[in-house]
C-alpha cells in the first residue's frame, strides 16, 4: 500500500469521526444560540439515538427504527427543556450548565438500567462488516459513505431551515435579540424548546449512522460531548457551519496522530491543537473577534 493511499485512508477515517463531532458541535451551537446554555448532555442524545434505534430494530425495519429513534430523542430533548430549563430560565447560565452535566449523568445511569452495560450496534445500512468500497485505492466501509451523506444532507437542510423559513428566521431573531423578537410577536420560550428538540434530533441521527462503526454503549455519549464541545469552540461558538469545520478538523487531527504517535496520545493531540488555536484566536477559527453577536447564527 502506497503512502498516498495510507494518507487518504487516515483522512477518510478522520472525516468520518469528525462528522460525528461536527453533528454534536452543531447541537451545542443550536442550543447555545437559542438559550446561552452549553448543553453537556448533548453526547447523551447521540448515545440515546443509537440505543433506541438498536432496540427498535428488533421490531421494525431499519429505516423505521432510525426514524423512530430520532423522533423519540427529539421529544426527549423538548421534554428536558420544558421540565428543567423553562422553569429555571431566570437563574444564571452557570446553574443551567451545571444542570446539563447532572442530566448527562442521570441519562447515562438511566440508560444503564434500561439496557445494560453491553456494547451494541445497529446492522450496517448496506453491506456488512467486511464489504468495502475502493476510493482511489483506499478501502472504506460503505457505512462511512452513509455517515458522510447523512451529515452533509442534515447540514444543508439545517442551513435552509435557518435561512429561508419562517421558523428558522424566528430562531435566528431570538438568538440575535430576544427582546426585540418577543416584541415582534415570537414566542421565544417555544423557540428554545424547538432548539433543544432540533439538536437532540441531530444528535440522535448522528448516533444512528455511526453506531455500526463505533458501536453504542450507555457511556458512549460523554466523550463525544467533550469532543463536540471542543469542535464547537475550535470553530467559534455560535456558528453551526463553523462547527462543521471544527469537527472535521479535530477528527482529522486525531486520525493522523494515531498514525504517528501511540494511540494513548489520540486525545492529547486534538486538545493540544485546540489550545494552540485558542491562544492565537480566542474566539475560535471562524468566530467574531469582538465577542459581539456571539450568539447569532
Amino acid at each position: 500500500m502506497g503512502s498516498e493511499i495510507l494518507i487518504l485512508q487516515y483522512l477518510l477515517s478522520g472525516i468520518t469521526k469528525g462528522s460525528i463531532y461536527a453533528m454534536v458541535a452543531i447541537g451545542f451551537n443550536l442550543i447555545f444560540s437559542a438559550t446561552g446554555v452549553l448543553n453537556f448532555a448533548q453526547g447523551e442524545f447521540v448515545m440515546l439515538g443509537g440505543m433506541i434505534a438498536v432496540t427498535l430494530s428488533f421490531y421494525f425495519p431499519l429505516p423505521v427504527a432510525v426514524a423512530g429513534a430520532v423522533v423519540i430523542v427529539a421529544c426527549i430533548g423538548c421534554l428536558l427543556e420544558l421540565l428543567f430549563f423553562r422553569p429555571l430560565r431566570h437563574h444564571s447560565i452557570l446553574h443551567m450548565i451545571i444542570i446539563t452535566i447532572g442530566l448527562s449523568i442521570v441519562i447515562q445511569e438511566a440508560a444503564l438500567h434500561i439496557w445494560d452495560e453491553k456494547v451494541r450496534s445497529l446492522p450496517y445500512f448496506t453491506g456488512n462488516e467486511i464489504s468495502s468500497v475502493k476510493i482511489y485505492g483506499a478501502a472504506i466501509s460503505p457505512q462511512v459513505l452513509w455517515v458522510l451523506g447523512t451529515i452533509t444532507v442534515s447540514v444543508i437542510l439545517l442551513h435552509i431551515f435557518l435561512r429561508y423559513t419562517l421558523q428558522g428566521r424566528a430562531m435566528r431573531a431570538c438568538s440575535s435579540n430576544p427582546e426585540a423578537a418577543m416584541l415582534a410577536g415570537i414566542n421565544i420560550s417555544n423557540m428554545r424548546t424547538l432548539a433543544f428538540g432540533l439538536s437532540a434530533a441531530l444528535g440522535a441521527l448522528g448516533g444512528c449512522v455511526i453506531s455500526p462503526i463505533t458501536m453504542t454503549q450507555y457511556e458512549a455519549g460523554a466523550p463525544l460531548a467533550i469532543k463536540g464541545f471542543a469542535a464547537a469552540i475550535l470553530g467559534g461558538l455560535g456558528n453551526p457551519m463553523a462547527a462543521v469545520a471544527g469537527g472535521l478538523l479535530i477528527g482529522i487531527i486525531e486520525a493522523f496522530s494515531v498514525s504517528k504517535l501511540p494511540a494513548a496520545y489520540n486525545d492529547v493531540s486534538a486538545f493540544a491543537i485546540l489550545l494552540l488555536v485558542l491562544f492565537i484566536r480566542p474566539h475560535g477559527l471562524f468566530g467574531s473577534p469582538s465577542g459581539q453577536g456571539v450568539r447569532e447564527f
Binding site: R169, R172, A173, S176, N177, A181, A184, G185, I186, E296
Partner: peptide
C-alpha cells in the same frame, strides 16, 4: 437583528 438583512428583519415582524 444586526446580522440579518433589512428585509429579514422586517419579515420577522410578520411572524
Amino acid at each position: 437583528f444586526l446580522k440579518m438583512s433589512v428585509l429579514e428583519n422586517v419579515m420577522v415582524g410578520r411572524h
